[in-house]
């Protein structure tokens, strides 16, 4: 589904991604863990080209999307949902409008179609009764569930999550993780950057450990958490587990 070959990213003199190569298969749930500043967010943001890579190639659904001259970036992004740490709901629009905006403007759905789909998704994330509420009047957990529904409304092929629960109060983490788990069970292809090791262990098909701009180790959660091979993985896990 997504294939990454020797991905490089620099911010000025800072070399953040130093050659990432990996493949995310259809229906796979991949969790990305690693210390702060290791480049996890940058890696994720390169996948939907929110950051423009300085080198390497990214293939999505069989097509090279880093071939900028021949690729419609907006079309690529429409096929990849992204959920941010800080939700980033549109504060001037209510929940329903948040969800419907992109389907209406990008996919050119009719309003009836878009709203019907939005209500289905709200039902799925358990917030049907909040359709007309504004984001400021929702809890963090509710906002994040709306953000997930908003991304799903575009019917993406892949969902990218960047620490979806890091900005939440502890009592709200579960409601968001449960929604993501349900997606995983339905077979959605997902890349999840997370600090929730319990979640990664339970849901991931594969875990990538990143450090200093590289994927240092990758394995099934059982192997990676119980028997990490690399010394840096060991030291990271000993601190967080």
């Amino acid at each position: 589904m997504i294939k990454v070959v020797d991905l490089q990213k620099r911010f000025g003199p800072l070399h953040v991604l130093k050659g990432i190569t990996n493949e995310i298969r259809e229906g796979e749930v991949v969790c990305v863990i690693g210390p702060s500043g290791s480049g996890k967010s940058t890696f994720l943001r390169c996948l939907n080209l929110l950051e423009v890579p300085n080198g390497g190639r990214i293939y999505f659904a069989g097509k090279e999307i880093t071939d900028f001259k021949n690729v419609d970036i907006n079309q690529v992004r429409a096929e990849m949902g992204m959920v941010f740490q800080r939700f980033n709901l549109f504060p001037h629009k209510n929940v329903l409008e948040n969800i419907c905006l992109a389907p209406l403007k990008v996919r050119k759905y009719s309003r009836e179609e878009a709203e019907a789909k939005a209500y289905d998704l709200l039902q799925k994330v358990g917030l049907k009764e909040k359709a007309l509420a504004f984001p400021d009047n929702l809890s963090g957990g509710q906002q994040q569930r709306v953000a997930i529904a908003r991304a799903l409304a575009m019917q993406p092929k892949v969902m990218l999550f960047d620490e979806p629960t890091s900005a939440l109060d502890p009592e709200m983490i579960k409601e968001v993780l449960d929604v993501i788990k349900e997606l995983a069970q339905e077979g959605m292809t997902m890349v999840v950057v997370t600090h929730e090791m319990g979640f990664a262990r339970e849901v991931a098909d594969r875990v990538l450990f990143m450090d200093d701009g590289l994927i240092v180790e990758e394995d099934t959660p059982d192997n990676l958490f119980n028997a990490p091979q690399n010394e840096r993985t060991q030291s990271f896990l000993s601190k967080v587990l």
Partner: peptide, 15 residues
């Protein structure tokens, strides 16, 4: 984050 959220949904810059 507002611009990024909008762009991540496939909206153009002007949208």
């Amino acid at each position: 984050g507002q611009l990024e959220a909008a762009r991540s949904l496939g909206m153009t810059y002007s949208q």
